[in-house]
């Protein structure tokens, strides 16, 4: 098992935990390029910049658009690492009063990040 730090665009850093080790997966090498994947459903959104919570990956961004559904809502966020889509419950969307142009921080747990060499 390894914890991998990946430097993404604009100096942002993402952390991932993988079962592989540098011995079992040759791509786990410093300087090697990888793609980073995570599921839209796994993206948590908060309006509080400093949150005492065990989620390692945090990137700030701005809500670009909101598509509200009956149960779930889809947010498109502009961040330092590009466009990120987050799907959250419509209940949370209303409670947090998320609308366009609001500044937020997105969060993804390290076990949700898939690396693709």
């Amino acid at each position: 098992m390894s914890i991998v730090c990946v430097e993404v665009d604009n100096g942002e850093e993402l952390m991932s935990v993988v079962i592989d080790s540098p011995e079992s997966a040759p791509y786990l090498k410093k300087g090697k390029k990888v793609n980073v994947l995570f599921k839209e459903m796994e993206v948590a959104v908060t309006t509080q910049k400093e949150l005492n919570i065990s989620i390692e990956n945090r990137i700030s961004g701005v809500v670009a658009s909101v598509e509200m559904g009956l149960l779930l809502s889809r947010l498109i966020l502009e961040t330092n690492i590009g466009e990120v889509i987050a799907i959250i419950s419509t209940k949370s969307l209303k409670q947090m009063e998320l609308v366009e142009r609001i500044e937020v921080v997105i969060m993804v747990k390290l076990n949700e990040i898939i690396l693709a060499p």
């Binding site: 991932s16 079962i19 592989d20 994947l37 598509e67 509200m68 009956l70 779930l72 889809r74 060499p117």
Partner: peptide, 22 residues
């Protein structure tokens, strides 16, 4: 093998269905 994901299967799409925003 192109992803580090270990829980993986290949299969065939049977149905694509819209539900809410997904």
């Amino acid at each position: 093998n192109k992803t580090s994901a270990k829980f993986r299967f290949s299969g065939e799409i049977l149905k694509i269905q819209r539900e809410d925003v997904i």
